[in-house]
Amino acid sequence: MIHPDRPLRIALFTYSTRPRGSVIHTLELAEALHQQGHIVCVYALDKEGQGFGRDLSCSYHLIPALPVQGGVDYLIRQRIQEVVIFLDNDPLQDGSYDIYHAQDCITANALILLRDQSKIPSVVRTVHHVEAYNSPYLRECQDRSIDRPDLCLCVSQHWQQAVQQQYQIRPDRVINGVKGDRFSPVSTVRQAQIQQTFGLYGSPIYLTVGGIEPRKNSILLLKAFAQVLSDQPQAQLVIAGGATLFDYQSYRDEFFARVQALEIEIGRSLVLPGVVSDADLPALYRSANAFVFPSTKEGWGLVVLEAIAAGLPVLTANRPPFTEFLTTGQAVLVDPEDVGAIAQGMLELSQPAVAQRLVQASQPILQHYTWERSAHLHVAAYRKLLRAKP
């Protein structure tokens, strides 16, 4: 039996080193757990061989993710095996960890294989959201990654209920957080450099983070922006990010065909900076006038918290999980399938009085979502698992 007060040895696993929501969640959780005195190590599949692009106070291991010949099913199989092989040859495994915690389907499947071979004691899995995969193999991997762990966690009430209904599992609830000091609205020298680098001189500048892909609702956002341009010809839409495991090329092709048909000039009205470094992201938020995120499916929407911390008025979808922490007094909530509503909402955000009211009303949200609190909730869940399965 582990003494209830002794620090835990925790291994956190993520499928990438690129700045996606669950990856950032992993790194920030690791830092917060480390600051609370626990022994933490992050394991991450690293495709580019460039690491996280940020310093970590805790230990970490980068798992080489080699090129794949074949479709997405082959990709997932290979990535699972790369994690298994790496851990089988990890000299630190001799000391083992108390907790093996996966933040995604890939690393969860790898840990389940190792647990079933009695090489690790148990598996924790955070389900950020459930995907509707077309591939039977991917559906099987996702189902196994949710149904087979010893402990399941969710960051939102919406997905907690969805997992309970679909899998008859009651996940423990944890939360996301945000570093208010990192994303504060205070201007910096780097902000001016970012504006110059990307040509951010629009009036107003609408920012979204997450790249061009279906669940980010990029095409409908683009159509809405085309309507906004008729009222605000100097406006700019900045779509940052884009690192993803899956190939959305057909959707991207349709997006750029719409750009051409709508005669929106890339580099002037539409700015596509791609993946922005971790160090530059706060300055990019500060360079914008409003944050627009009419996503159709999110585990939580970590970027929304970051935008609020940066002092931006926010537009997002009028559906969970956003409505779990935002009201109509704190953000412009719109039907993400309604182009006209998105456009009208964007125009509302550009009104100084509306923007000021939303920013002021949304700031109190931040005190409820800190990584320190998230770490405490995780430790409570970990210790419950350890008591149940010593």
Rank of each mutant, 00 (worst) to 15 (best):
K216L: 09
F198Y: 15
T208S: 14
L207V: 14
Q232K: 02
T208L: 09
L221A: 09
L229A: 02
V228W: 04
G210V: 03
D231L: 12
V209S: 11
L207A: 03
T188S: 02
L220A: 09
Q227Y: 11
T208G: 10
S230F: 10
I219V: 15
K216C: 09
V228E: 00
Q232E: 12
K223M: 14
V189F: 02
I205E: 00
Q196R: 06
Q227C: 08
Q191K: 03
Y201P: 07
F198E: 09
Y201W: 03
Q195Y: 10
P233T: 05
L220K: 14
L220M: 15
S218N: 00
V228C: 03
L220N: 13
L229Q: 04
Q193E: 12
A226Q: 02
Q196D: 15
F198T: 04
R190S: 02
Q193T: 09
L221M: 12
L220R: 13
K223T: 06
A226D: 13
E213K: 15
A192H: 07
A224Q: 11
Q191H: 03
I194Q: 01
F225K: 06
F198H: 13
F225E: 05
T197Q: 14
T208Q: 11
S218C: 01
G202S: 01
G211A: 10
Q193G: 00
Q191N: 06
G199P: 12
Q227I: 08
L207Y: 01
L200D: 03
P233V: 02
Y201L: 10
S218P: 08
T208K: 08
S203D: 02
V228F: 06
Y206V: 00
V189E: 05
